[in-house]
């Protein structure tokens, strides 16, 4: 990476080069995130990142901010504690389809239900990359993985819809092909004072591509683009014709009381107390 990249100042330069494969969408998404963060006029110094386990969960390790790289599937639990302990932090969670929809599925719906002010970027590559190409809960029916050698027979989750149904106040899905829409969605998510979920469908040429006759990043990108259907158009399509399609757009954009605000409101209204921050460093409280 050259020092000329405008986002280099946000990176931990002593950690580069990164571990992502050539053609991976993670770099595009990091770049989209940083662009969105600037557009949202966020203070990068105030951002704390949390992630679980998987390729996408390695992203915070390259960002020069406080970052908590946690256990598989549990990023949202850790993030819930972090945000509750210090609600002044802007907490961003990077997760993947296996991390947040499989092992962490329960935490995902509960974090959405609580409408806790977290911005979750779910990098959905439809496969387990870190462990070498096993199918995930979002793998399309019929797709191949090392654990689905005869084609995946399971129905995939529609994550953005699932999270909207669970109570998130912002939920959207885009792909790595619609960069500007993705940037706007992340910006809206960062600004939304509640649970924000941005699903990014992305390419994994190394594993998904190789197993599914889409070996080059270009082949994967073309496929993503061909399969994309905008939400408005999708609403006029028959269910049968939507099979295998990626419906993009916003699935929730609303306002509800936020979780940590509710906690502080009760303390304030009933006992005249604000939620303490950094109290561990005090000898007497």
């Amino acid at each position: 990476m050259s020092d000329g990249n405008k986002f280099t100042p946000y990176m931990r330069k002593d950690r580069l080069p990164h571990i992502f494969c050539p053609g991976c969408g993670n770099g595009t998404i990091m770049s989209a995130f940083l662009k969105a963060m600037e557009k949202a006029e966020m203070d990068f110094e105030n951002i704390a990142m949390v992630s679980g386990i998987g390729c996408s969960s390695r992203i915070p390790g390259y960002m020069d901010c406080d970052s908590l790289h946690t256990t598989h599937g549990r990023a949202l639990s850790f993030a819930t504690g972090l945000k509750t302990a210090n609600k002044d932090l802007d907490v961003v969670v990077f997760t993947g389809d296996g991390d947040c929809a499989s092992i962490g599925g329960n935490h995902l719906i509960h974090a959405a239900r609580r409408n806790i002010n977290l911005t979750v970027i779910c990098i959905n590559n439809n496969i387990y990359g870190m462990t070498g190409g096993q199918i995930s809960p979002t793998s399309p029916k019929g797709s191949y993985g090392t654990t689905a050698p005869y084609g995946n027979q399971d129905n995939p989750f529609n994550l953005a819809e699932l999270v909207a149904a669970a109570g998130a106040t912002y939920s959207a899905r885009w792909t790595t092909i619609q960069i500007e829409s993705l940037v706007m969605a992340i910006k809206d998510g960062l600004k939304n004072p509640g649970f924000s979920f941005i699903e990014v469908v992305t390419q994994c040429p190394t594993y998904y591509g190789r197993k599914n006759k889409l070996r080059t990043p270009t082949a994967m990108a073309v496929t993503l683009k061909m399969n994309t259907v905008f939400k408005d158009a999708a609403s006029r399509m028959r269910q049968k014709d939507l099979e295998g399609k990626i419906v993009v757009g916003e699935f929730a954009n609303t306002q509800k009381a936020e979780f940590t605000e509710n906690i502080e409101r009760i303390s304030e209204e009933k006992f005249g107390k604000k939620t303490l921050i950094n109290s561990a460093y005090e000898e007497e409280l």
Binding site: F78, G81, K83, S267, F271
Partner: peptide, 27 residues
């Protein structure tokens, strides 16, 4: 709530342990 603290009933014990680790790094 009487002393400016936070109580969260989590969805399970895995989440509870995760949350308190996050809370601890939160200060």
């Amino acid at each position: 709530p009487k002393v400016g603290g936070s109580f969260v009933q989590m969805e399970d014990e895995i989440a509870s342990a995760g949350a308190i680790i996050g809370g601890s790094w939160g200060g």
